[in-house]
Amino acid sequence: MLELAHLTAGYPGRPPVLRDACLTIAPGEAVGLQGPSGCGKSTLARVAALLHRPDHGTVTVDGHRVHGWRHRAPRSLRTRIGVVFQQPRQSADPRLTLADVIAEPLRANGRRAEVPDRLPELSRSVGLTDELLTRRPHEVSDGQLQRACLARALALEPRWLVCDEMTSMLDASTTAALVGAVESYRTRTGAGLLAVSHDDELLTRWCDRTVTLAAGAAGSAGAAGSAKDLDTWTS
């Protein structure tokens, strides 16, 4: 289970963008999170990926209560969650080749020996050709780079995937291809998914259920900015 309970989060010097939000994702479940710009859905995704410390509330990953965020989170917990961001250009180190981008998590975890086997497998699973792997980010298109970013997120076989607006810069065909790659990974491993998007058609199609985060998070206690008791439906 990935459990986010009573989260209040924001950025210094500003009112919290997220108030008392609750969300629970079961293993193998795909949950879509939608809402207008500025409602805090990306912040929620960052908290769920253990990249942003909430002001209040708890995150529990597979029964382990999280006490530290970013580097302070234990590595075993951090690597249970794969994350893909909105802008591929910002998400890949411009100095690395795509092969290095994808293999980086393996190398960072002392699993260098697996790279020769896993790299072709990972790149094939997201539809990247070998020739593209030798290039640097500025030599490929947004869609190709986002495929590499997804492959990187899958490299450690995470139990959970957080996709924050993964496809909103991409065309319909690349969107469908990336969602297909995520789904075939989930079918194989049974991983859970939190997909953030403002495209409700996409989320309805992709996810088991969709949760709406209301705009104007700063509001009366409880309801506003919370995913807890707002219109939740199952598709």
């Binding site: 065309d171 065909s173 969107t175 469908a176 309805t204």
Partner: peptide, 13 residues
């Protein structure tokens, strides 16, 4: 490939 249609990508790149 649109999610409102078949949601199947064009094969290849």
């Amino acid at each position: 490939a649109l999610p409102s249609r078949t949601f199947v990508p064009v094969p290849g790149m």
